[in-house]
């Protein structure tokens, strides 16, 4: 098994979960209704918890401690896609991102339950159960707001159009794509994208929204190229930790 390829895969999944979990947590106290504060907070906890579990696997194969890995790297060392680091914006933007992202994650972890790398397959089975609620939440809201008022439909459509190129960036290929597939670790980004597109189209088809025109994917995140928003997020996240990185907080 190609260890470099495996680590690359694990890092990008964990970084996605951590950064989006962090963004979701920013809704605490700010949601459009209390129930949504609570829902976004639950998803934030799941995602941050999932990222921790994957960093733990990485630690077991020779990488640093999860706290050090999460709180001490710079933006260029992160492999998350750019979509998850974008600021929350209005609720329509956060909701649409949550829908696009979690639809992909649910398929990704479903695929990973069959991974030849056992620790990942075991973890994927556990995470799969949690993600089921995330996709259920996203789907319910997209269907509701995507069919309700002119304002809600127009807001969702605008966010959808804006996010779509970033969503395609989730499937940026790894330089080790062939190894990952050949080793049976993961069926690859292209296979994931295909299933994702079908599922997104199916749900959008049940609303008054339209699929955006095909556009160029926003790539680079997987290689450490990020928007201007990631480094400030990381600075905020590590503000206390860096007062004394060796301290027990």
């Amino acid at each position: 098994m190609n260890q470099t390829a495996l680590k690359e895969l694990l890092y990008k999944i964990a970084d996605d979960q951590l950064i989006l979990g962090h963004r979701n947590s920013e809704w605490t106290g700010m949601g459009p209704l209390l129930e949504e504060d609570i829902a976004f907070s639950s998803m934030a906890q799941d995602k941050v918890g999932q990222s921790h579990a994957i960093y733990q696997i990485l630690h077991e194969i020779g990488e640093g401690e999860p706290d050090q890995v999460a709180f001490m790297r710079n933006a260029e060392q992160f492999h998350n896609c750019q979509m998850v680091e974008l600021p929350n914006g209005e609720y329509d933007f956060s909701l649409m991102r949550h829908f696009l992202y979690d639809t992909a994650e649910a398929i990704r972890f479903d695929m990973l339950t069959k991974s030849s790398y056992e620790p990942l397959a075991l973890l994927a089975k556990k995470i799969q159960g949690e993600l089921r609620y995330h996709t259920m939440h996203a789907k319910t809201w997209i269907k509701q707001l995507g069919t309700a008022t002119e304002e809600s439909k127009s807001r969702l459509q605008t966010s959808f159009n804006e996010l779509f190129p970033y969503a395609l960036g989730m499937f940026e290929q790894s330089p080790y794509e062939n190894d990952i597939i050949a080793d049976g670790i993961f069926p690859g980004e292209e296979a994931l994208k295909e299933k994702w597109m079908a599922r997104v189209e199916e749900i959008i088809g049940q609303t008054d929204l339209k699929m955006p025109e095909v556009s160029e994917a926003k790539l680079g995140g997987r290689k450490g190229e990020h928007t201007e928003y990631l480094q400030p997020l990381l600075d905020e996240m590590s503000e206390v930790f860096k007062i004394d990185p060796t301290a027990d907080w």
Partner: peptide
């Protein structure tokens, strides 16, 4: 009350504290 503590969720030092504080403030909203 969720506001003064909530501002520290994004800055909580380390996974353990970050997860616990998120859950705690979520409880308060609940």
């Amino acid at each position: 009350g969720a506001l003064p503590e909530g501002t520290w969720i994004t800055r909580a030092p380390g996974f353990k504290r970050k997860l616990a504080l998120m859950a705690k403030v979520q409880d308060e909203v609940g």
